[in-house]
């Protein structure tokens, strides 16, 4: 009970590990290009010191890939009777509780990379922009189920502002 990020009566759903793959792809696309450019420059000029930034960038990419893996494992959500819980982060942890009745609309999005890995994001919007209720990395059918479920529950508990 003393642990705010782990309410007792809640079973957490983890998001798909494919989210990590999708994010790794993103990292590889961005940082891979940078590293490749640096390597090309290093080989072309033959200057030894150019390898240093290349190595640093590569190390940073590996580090962020490792962090991403951890982050994806830490991202989880739970549906309770009246609200949705979303939890994220390991070092800096965040928990958001969104009552269904406060929901204004639901977004389901899937970019090209996400589609390639068969995942989608569901985002809940309340009247407050501060509500950061995004669940990345849901399988499309789970995203659709969650969307419909949220919409129907929101309707049942509809309230104004």
């Amino acid at each position: 009970m003393s642990e705010p990020f782990d309410p007792t009566d809640v079973t957490w759903n983890h998001v798909s590990p494919r989210l990590a793959h999708a994010r790794w792809t993103g990292i590889a696309l961005v940082w891979g290009v940078v590293v490749a450019c640096l390597v090309v420059v290093a080989v072309a000029t033959g200057a030894a010191w150019v390898w240093v930034p290349a190595a640093l960038v590569a190390a940073f990419a590996v580090w962020s890939a490792w962090i991403t893996g951890r982050q994806v494992r830490a991202l989880m959500y739970a549906e309770r009777a009246d609200d949705l819980l979303i939890r994220r982060g390991i070092m800096f942890r965040q928990l958001v509780v969104v009552p269904y009745g406060r929901m204004q609309y639901v977004d389901v999005t899937a970019g090209p990379v996400a589609r390639r890995f068969g995942i989608a994001s569901v985002q809940l919007h309340t009247a407050s922009p501060a509500t950061t209720a995004t669940i990345d990395g849901l399988p499309p059918e789970e995203a659709a189920r969650l969307r419909d479920r949220l919409a129907s529950r929101g309707e049942a508990r509809l309230a104004g502002l």
């Binding site: 705010p4 070092m91 965040q94 509780v97 406060r102 309340t126 407050s128 509500t131």
Partner: peptide
């Protein structure tokens, strides 16, 4: 109340404290 949240950084975690946020319009 629109939605509510909690946040905790590494230092806060060590001290066993956390921040409470209430989301308004």
């Amino acid at each position: 109340t629109q939605s509510i949240g909690a946040e905790q950084g590494p230092l806060q975690r060590r001290l066993g404290i956390a921040s409470f946020v209430l989301h308004s319009t």
